[in-house]
Amino acid sequence: MRVSELVERSGVPLATIKYYLREGVLMPGESTSATQSRYGDQHVQRLALIKALAGAGLPIHKIRAVAALVDEPGDDLYTTLGRAIAMLPPYPDGEGADRGPDYPRARRVLERLGQVYDPEFPAVAQLERALKAVEEVGIPMTDERIDAYGRHIMGIARMELGLMPTDSAAAVEYAVLGTAVYEPVIAAMRRVAYQDLATRIFLQDMPETREEH
């Protein structure tokens, strides 16, 4: 397809496509002349990936890193997935600011749940920061919360991993996209569940509103 069709199919403006080409996050098309190139479905798919990551708040250099991992995932899928997830927010306040030999809050939670504690895995540092934040506002992570959250989140993770493609490049893209676009879905569904339960608990005994005459 020509670039005009790529614009139409992807919904990405021409100027933005040219920017992505310059930045190396979108692979170049097949050159057909000195001024024209041909594009394919892989370009439409890559633009969808870029749009999703940009919408999740990733800066262009993080998107470039994810694209590079999708293009060349390597043989160690576990390490590659960890590197890909590390590209997603939230980020440390400075380069290496949140690194350390140990993350005591995260370690306590993961050990209670019987899960792997790997301080080199980026999400462990993210968990440590999140746990510190809930402590600071006076709503610490109790054992009851750990058990309930852990049980349901493990169920979600098990289901999602069961759907993960076996191809390495597709697996990286699936993991990053699934995290970036589905975490807001999970958060929104949690809030809707609150609303549903609050309606049942707090409104069931309220008298009906009567019109005054």
Rank of each mutant, 00 (worst) to 15 (best):
S4A: 14
G24T: 02
P184M: 07
R151Y: 05
P92E: 02
T209R: 14
S33E: 06
R112K: 07
P184Q: 07
V192M: 12
V12R: 01
Y20E: 11
A171E: 08
P90S: 11
Q126L: 05
Q45D: 12
I186N: 06
V12N: 05
D76Y: 05
G40T: 09
Q45G: 05
G29P: 03
P207T: 05
I63Y: 01
G55D: 06
V172S: 10
A67T: 10
P122H: 07
L197G: 09
P101Y: 00
V109R: 04
Y174T: 07
E128W: 04
A193I: 04
L6S: 04
Y78R: 14
H43K: 03
D205P: 04
M87W: 06
L81F: 10
Y103F: 14
T35D: 13
G138K: 00
L81T: 14
P73R: 15
R108P: 00
A86Q: 08
L14T: 12
V137R: 09
V181K: 02
I139E: 15
V44G: 01
L163M: 12
G162P: 08
P119Q: 04
Y91N: 04
S37D: 01
V134G: 11
P59G: 03
G94V: 02
D98H: 09
A175F: 03
I201N: 04
V137A: 02
E120Y: 07
T166G: 08
D118I: 11
L163S: 12
V44W: 03
Q115R: 14
V185Y: 10
Y182M: 14
E160L: 15
V3S: 03
Q204G: 00
F202L: 15
A67E: 04
E8P: 00
F121D: 13
G94T: 01
A106Q: 01
M206L: 15
E136A: 14
I50Y: 05
T209C: 11
L203K: 06
Y194I: 09
G114E: 02
G11C: 01
L53V: 03
Y39N: 00
A130D: 01
Y19V: 12
E128A: 01
R112F: 04
R64G: 03
M154A: 14
V176R: 00
G11D: 01
R64L: 06
G162W: 15
M1A: 05
P101C: 00
L49K: 01
L58K: 00
P90A: 09
R38L: 10
T79E: 09
L88R: 08
Q42M: 08
L69H: 07
R129N: 03
G155Y: 00
S37H: 00
